[in-house]
């Protein structure tokens, strides 16, 4: 089956000459959660805005559900729900009305029951007759999500959904995303929070300066680029590492009480067993072992810096 969203050589040059997207190619599969990571101004929002129809592409093509976003805009836009980054809501409107308005705008007949379900799912039912201006920031963000879900989209774009949101709401948001995924909705989210991508995404794309640097399965990415570290705590301090251990990539702590061993998880052998053997052969008593894996954040920083250095 063809990808739910197909982006081919998408370019966007703004009137001032700024090139926000420099030929992006990306296939997004139905039902997956794709996280787009990138620094501010990387082109994440431009990419989303173009797919949703808010900005016009300069060249290239995008299809959603097999339909072209320009030629068949009614079909593609009907499939898409968008939660924008900024909290854009009419302050004097009522929660229920504004959600019902969105549903109608997307061509769906009035359905109070459906609107009620959505409001309940987002814990907004108690606030249904409140004005937007009476709501807290977190509640307003929920309203934005309710509006985006009002017409039952098959593809949902979340542009930094958890920026400036408290921990509880962030957890709620992740639950909602998980539920939508269970319903088969394709979800694309942009984020600054790498832990967010780590927690909920199936695949991760890294975008910087209008270019998609890579898109990969989250776990593959972490294994491929992940470096693991083994920390060996010692019973007695060492002043220097014995020569017999020079094959290993080791670092001795200043206090001499621990040794750090860096290894590649993708390598055929990690060498841990051999290392432990070598330690006991030298008569070094091991007190404890612990391993840690580099996070997406480290991977991300490395990637973005690499391209910046190359440029």
């Amino acid at each position: 089956m063809a990808a739910m969203v197909q982006i081919q050589d998408l370019r966007k040059v703004y009137d001032g000459g700024f090139e926000a997207l420099k030929g992006v190619n990306l296939d997004i599969e139905e039902g997956e959660i794709l996280a787009l990571l990138g620094p501010n101004g990387a082109g994440k929002t431009t990419l989303i805005s173009t797919i949703c129809g808010i900005t016009l592409p300069s060249s290239g093509s995008v299809t959603v559900g097999g339909y072209d976003i320009l030629a068949d805009y009614r079909k593609t836009r009907g499939l898409i729900g968008l939660v924008p980054q900024e909290i854009n809501l009419e302050p004097f409107e009522y929660v229920r009305n504004t959600v019902a308005f969105s549903r109608g705008l997307f061509g769906k007949p009035r359905n109070d029951g459906r609107v009620e379900e959505i409001l309940k799912k987002l814990s907004l039912w108690d606030k249904r007759d409140s004005k937007i201006m009476e709501l807290s920031g977190g509640m307003r963000r929920r309203v934005l999500i309710a509006k985006a879900l009002s017409h039952d989209p098959r593809v949902l774009f979340l542009d930094e959904p958890t920026a400036g949101v408290d921990v509880e709401l962030r957890r709620d948001m992740w639950d909602i995303v998980a539920q939508l995924k269970a319903d088969g909705v394709t979800i694309i989210l942009t984020t600054h929070y790498i832990e967010e991508a780590e927690a909920i995404a199936d695949r991760v794309g890294v975008i910087s300066k209008g270019e998609l640097l890579l898109v990969e399965d989250k776990s593959t990415l972490m294994t491929r680029m992940g470096r693991k570290e083994l920390r060996v705590d010692l019973q007695d301090p060492l002043t220097a590492l014995p020569d017999s251990l020079s094959d290993f990539d080791l670092a001795l702590a200043e206090d001499g009480l621990s040794v750090t061993y860096a290894y590649d998880t993708a390598a055929e052998r990690t060498g841990i067993a051999r290392l432990v053997g070598a330690f006991s052969a030298e008569g070094i008593v091991i007190r404890d072992l612990q391993t840690s894996q580099s996070s997406l954040e480290d991977i991300f920083v490395t990637l973005v810096h690499k391209t910046e250095d190359a440029a």
Partner: peptide, 11 residues
């Protein structure tokens, strides 16, 4: 106020 995004992204 920015709510035009919805109008522009609607079918």
């Amino acid at each position: 106020i920015g709510t035009i995004y919805e109008l522009l992204s609607a079918p």
